[in-house]
Design a binder for these strands. Structure first.
Lengths: 236, 236
DNA sequence: TGTACATCAGTGAACGCGCGTTCACTGATGTAC
DNA sequence: TGTACATCAGTGAACGCGCGTTCACTGATGTAC
């Protein structure tokens, strides 16, 4: 699918490869700008080529189709938001779990507000006819894994007396085995819900569902996310 | 904006008005079918006209522009999901608050799964360039009001010791005054979060963010939503 | 270091398609007297 | 009940636009000997 040829790092880069990498980046940058202006549906290879002063067919030397360009943008968006959150989270004292959680979610929201169309690209409606290739899976899981990591550092928290259906418990156990060995299923279920709450609340804000109800979005977000953190028993 | 001329109910409907109402409905039905197949971005007046055997300009007698047709579909979608949830909720004993909550959220999810593109239309990415007119506000608030109604019947629940920022408290107080006189701000804040959790979780499922993590979607949804209901102290 | 060949980037024309919207028009339905 | 006029639905042609993708091509860059 997405066959943008990236030079293996450290390999001798001759002039051609360097120019190629630069132009690939330039195409993505222009595409990202147009995405920010008119949304994913309106993203067109021809418009990108026009802005770059190329003929439209030249873009096909870099991206074999429109979908491949979209995939590249999706991967970049996942990586950008993952990097922003990871960077913010790293700055907090490892023992301050609530601080790590709040740093993560605030960085997430800040990135989303700064890049609403890229946010919509990865967390909004799926694009009809577009099938996400394998390449998007790893970048997509960076952020949930960051959150699960914080919860994992918290360790197991005894569950309430709600019982988890057997099938769900199996799913959670599998996830625990590969991503969060220190927590029990109850706590991991809460972590998934927390991740969903984060995306849900930011989407509500960006997509206008809190319009005229909440005015201090940042204050409301912080308040609610502190509540979620408390639910995860992250406070010291 | 949306000037689909609807005959005032009870007014004498002559043949022309009856045919007009029927065709208006037929256009919307066909548009909804095409929406379900190819998504909102691909919805085209010409394709709708083609399927109806009309010439494309004839559709303009019913909807003055593509955006007006979209608005009509959005309003209908909000009303359909609101009606489905309301109907399910009404069947439950008024005193069984948890039952009313679960009936509401299950009806919501069922409708969403049956109409994924309509769901995306109202809860997914906003359509670039499309500005929702006033007409969509009332239908959009049916479902949140239903949820707030359940919480209101629960009555005030003492908050935890987290403090609510002054600005957020003001927003919540205003909402309480017009929609939920019986609850305090703490509880109303939880109700908003519950609404966001519901949409967030269904979006995660429909938009593929739980792919390969959760397999028993229904079991997981019920489990998590019971948790949310418990957080709202709805259980008897 | 120089030459012959292979690789690659970019061009320009073309294919075939679809779209929203406007407009002058015909003919049918409804209304007022 | 019949007639004259006004309203409305649907037609067909047109405007002006943009899109993704393919293909044979030129000329520049890189590679192997």
């Amino acid at each position: 699918m997405h066959s943008e040829r990236v030079s293996t790092p450290g390999a001798p880069q001759n002039a051609r490869a360097r120019v190629r990498a630069e132009l690939t980046k330039e195409i993505k940058d222009v595409a990202r700008r147009q995405l920010a202006e008119s949304g994913a549906a309106a993203l067109s290879l021809r418009a990108v080529a026009r802005e770059l002063g190329m003929v439209s067919s030249a873009v096909y030397r870099y991206f074999p189709s429109r979908d491949d360009l979209l995939t590249a943008l999706i991967v970049d968006a996942y990586e950008a938001v993952g990097a922003a959150a990871t960077k913010a989270e790293k700055r907090v004292n490892r023992k301050d779990l609530m601080g790590r959680w709040m740093a993560t979610v605030r960085a997430f929201r800040t990135w989303a507000i700064a890049h609403p169309q890229e946010y919509a690209l990865i967390f909004g409606s799926p694009i009809p006819g577009y099938k996400a290739p394998q390449d998007t899976i790893d970048p997509a899981s960076r952020l949930p894994l960051l959150i699960i990591g914080i919860v994992n550092d918290r360790g197991a928290v005894p569950g309430a007396d709600r019982l988890i259906p057997r099938s769900v418990r199996a799913d959670l156990r599998a996830l625990s085995a590969q991503a969060a060995p220190e927590v029990n299923e109850e706590q991991l279920g809460r972590a998934i819900m927390a991740w969903s709450q984060l995306v849900g609340l930011v989407s509500f804000e960006l997509f206008g569902h809190l319009h005229n109800v909440i005015h201090d979005y940042k204050g409301h977000f912080d308040f609610q996310m502190q509540g979620v953190g408390a639910g995860l028993v992250l406070a010291q």
